[in-house]
C-alpha cells in the first residue's frame, strides 16, 4: 500500500543518522528551524508573512506615516474633505482613499485603525493562549476529576453568548481598549484550552513522559520540560488562526460601539459609520473592510502554511504527490 511505502520512505528520511541527504537539511537544527526552512519554500505563506510584517510596521509607525501624509487621523478637513452637499469626498490626490462623513482622511484612519486591530488581536490572543495552555495542559495531564472540572468549565465558556456578555459588561464598565481585550480573551481562551487538552492527552501517553516519570521527575517538570515544548507547533498554528478571529471580534465590538471609544479610529467603527453613506461614498465602506479582509486572510493563510510546515508528515505526503 502506498501508506506503507510512505512510511518506509519516511523512515529513510527520518532516520537522520543513517542517510546523508535529508540530514543535510536537518543537521543540528531545531525542529522549528526545520519548519522555517519548509515555510520558506511556500510562496503564499511568505507573501502573507510579508503582508503581516508590513501591517505591523504600519501600526508601529502610524504617527510617522500620517505625518508624512500630512493628515492626522482626527483632523477634520471641512473644506477639502467634504463635498459642498456635505457628503464625503471621493479618493483624490488629496485624500488617496477618500474622506469620511466629517472630512477626515480615510487612509490616515485606516493606518491608525491597524494599531487597534493588531494590538487587540495580538494581546487578546496572547492572553487566551496563556490561559488556554495552562488550563488545557492541566486538564489533559492530570485527567480524572481535574480534567472533568476544567473541561466542563471550558464548555461553559464556549457556550457563553458573546455579544450579550460584551454588551452588559460594557454597559457596566464603559467601553475601553482594556475591556475589549478582556472580553475577547475571555471568549477565545477555551478554544485554545480544548485543543491543548487534546494534544496533551496524546503526549501524556508518550514513552518519553513515562521515561521522565520513571526518573522521578515532578509533574510540574514534566509539564514544562516534556509536554509544553511539544505544544509549540499546534499552538503557533492555532494562535495564528486565532489572531484574525480576535481582530474580527474587535471590529464587531467597535462596529456596535462597544469597543474602543470614538474618536480613536478602528476598522470596526469606520465600517459602522460608513453605513449611513455607503451608497454615495462606497470607498468609505470599501477600504476599511478591505483592510480587515486582507489582514484576516493573511493570518489565516499563514496559519495554514505554518500547519504544513510544522507537521512533517503532512509535508511528506505533499512531497510524494
Amino acid at each position: 500500500m502506498t501508506l506503507i511505502a510512505a512510511d518506509e520512505v519516511a523512515e529513510q528520511k527520518g532516520g537522520g543518522g543513517k542517510d546523508p541527504q535529508p540530514t543535510k537539511a536537518i543537521e543540528g537544527r531545531a525542529p522549528l528551524q526545520l519548519a522555517w526552512a519548509r515555510l520558506r519554500k511556500d510562496k503564499v505563506s511568505l507573501a502573507c508573512l510579508g503582508v503581516i510584517v508590513l501591517l505591523v510596521l504600519v501600526a508601529i509607525f502610524a504617527n510617522q506615516l500620517t505625518d508624512l501624509i500630512g493628515h492626522p487621523p482626527n483632523e477634520q478637513y471641512r473644506d477639502e474633505g467634504l463635498q459642498p452637499n456635505g457628503l464625503p469626498v471621493a479618493p483624490s490626490s488629496f485624500f488617496w482613499l477618500g474622506g469620511d462623513e466629517v472630512g477626515r482622511d480615510v487612509l490616515s484612519r485606516i493606518i491608525h485603525g491597524a494599531r487597534v486591530s493588531l494590538l487587540v488581536g495580538v494581546v487578546a490572543t496572547a492572553f487566551a493562549v496563556l490561559i488556554g495552555v495552562t488550563i488545557g495542559t492541566m486538564a489533559g495531564y492530570f485527567g480524572g476529576v481535574i480534567d472533568t472540572f476544567l473541561s466542563r468549565t471550558m464548555d461553559v465558556f464556549l457556550s457563553f453568548p458573546f455579544l450579550l456578555f460584551a454588551i452588559s459588561l460594557v454597559a457596566v464598565k464603559g467601553a475601553s481598549l482594556r475591556i475589549s481585550i478582556f472580553v475577547i480573551a475571555f471568549f477565545i481562551w477555551a478554544n485554545v484550552g480544548r485543543i491543548v487538552r487534546g494534544q496533551v492527552l496524546s503526549i501524556r501517553e508518550k514513552e518519553y513522559v513515562e521515561a521522565a516519570r520513571s526518573l522521578g521527575a515532578s509533574d510540574l517538570r514534566i509539564m514544562v520540560v516534556d509536554v509544553i515544548p511539544n505544544l509549540v507547533a499546534p499552538v503557533i498554528v492555532y494562535s495564528t488562526l486565532l489572531i484574525p478571529t480576535a481582530i474580527v471580534f474587535e471590529a464587531t465590538l467597535s462596529f456596535l460601539g462597544l469597543g474602543v471609544p470614538i474618536p480613536t479610529p478602528t476598522w470596526g467603527n469606520m465600517i459602522a459609520t460608513s453605513q449611513s453613506t455607503y451608497l454615495q461614498a462606497p470607498w468609505y465602506l470599501l477600504f476599511p473592510s478591505l483592510a480587515l479582509f486582507i489582514t484576516t486572510l493573511a493570518f489565516n493563510l499563514l496559519g495554514d502554511g505554518l500547519r504544513d510546515a510544522l507537521d512533517p508528515r503532512a509535508a511528506r505526503v505533499l512531497a510524494r504527490k
Binding site: G17, K18, D19, P20, Q21, T23, K24, I26, E27, G28
Partner: peptide, 11 residues
C-alpha cells in the same frame, strides 16, 4: 560518511 551529511559532524 555514509551516515553523515556533508559539512556536519561525522556520524
Amino acid at each position: 560518511s555514509v551516515d553523515v551529511p556533508d559539512g556536519s559532524a561525522a556520524d
